[in-house]
């Protein structure tokens, strides 16, 4: 399949899926915004009101981290299941298997566009000044997207080959929820060695922190680190697409028979 046709197909499938998804619920498209907003509310109630922990600007701090995290966790969780979920199509046509996780990621990326608009509206409402520095979010989003894509491809292959990975992936998401500095600040950790280790070994923690640096503190992210992460993720995506192309019929057999 030519790259042009592949992209056209991904876009079409993602938009159809979003339309179908919206028609399934009473509140339809409102859920795009409502769901992440409710997630933030839950965290806010627990950490700010019940536990009375956190800082003065906790709500904005939380939003910056949580919105990007939901994009990652929802995409990867759903995409991991995507090859098996499309058994029906796979049984019928020789399709590139990377198509299915790709569609899921595309779908959540379209939703995320609305969520980012909400994020900027909240920032302005809370008195943060609009600045050119905010343009840094563009490379951050690109990197974020590539990272999601790489993890989605890996997840989809693993679950297709061995179903048991589904359990591992949902546990991994909970682990990431706790170690990525969503409701706590990596930079406020007492041991700088641990903070450093988290930022290096957990790319998600680095990204969430970078969003905050850019949006809340008007500073630029660690450019070298960001660039390495972007190139690394892009390379990984490229390798994974090639591997999935090579293993196309093995993945089909596994999806259909196990």
């Amino acid at each position: 399949m030519s790259p042009g046709r592949y992209i056209q197909l991904v876009d079409e499938m993602a938009r159809m899926e979003l339309r179908a998804d919206a028609s399934r619920y009473l509140l339809g498209y409102v859920w795009w915004i409502l769901e992440p907003a409710l997630y933030v509310t839950v965290f806010y109630v627990v950490f700010k009101i019940v536990l009375n922990s956190g800082r003065g600007d906790f709500l904005v701090f939380l939003i910056c981290g949580k919105f990007a995290f939901i994009w990652f966790s929802k995409s990867v969780t759903q995409a991991s299941n995507s090859i098996i979920a499309n058994k029906g199509l796979i049984a019928k046509l020789d399709t590139p298997k990377s198509l299915f996780p790709m569609v899921i990621v595309q779908q959540s990326t379209y939703k995320q566009a609305a969520v980012f608009v909400l994020l900027f509206v909240m920032l302005v409402l809370f008195g943060y000044e609009v600045s050119w520095n905010w343009l840094w979010v563009i490379p951050l989003m690109v990197t974020n997207y590539l990272l999601i894509l790489a993890c989605s491809f890996i997840g989809a292959c693993l679950v297709c080959l061995i179903r048991d990975f589904k359990m591992v992936i949902s546990l991994a998401m909970i682990f990431l929820l706790f170690v990525s500095g969503i409701f706590w600040d990596v930079r406020a950790l007492e041991d700088p060695a641990i903070a450093n280790a988290i930022l290096i070994f957990n790319p998600l923690a680095f990204l969430l922190d970078a969003y905050r640096q850019v949006l809340m503190y008007h500073s630029s992210p660690d450019i070298g680190h960001l660039f390495a992460l972007m190139v690394g993720s892009a390379l990984l995506v490229w390798v994974l697409v090639a591997v999935m192309r090579k293993a196309n019929s093995l993945l089909a057999l596994k999806a259909l028979t196990s």
Binding site: R19, D21, R24, G88, A91
Partner: peptide, 16 residues
Amino acid sequence: LLTIALGFRPDLSGRD
């Protein structure tokens, strides 16, 4: 391959 009712996405319309 032409098979009965395989590969449909139930939430999408017939047209889609």
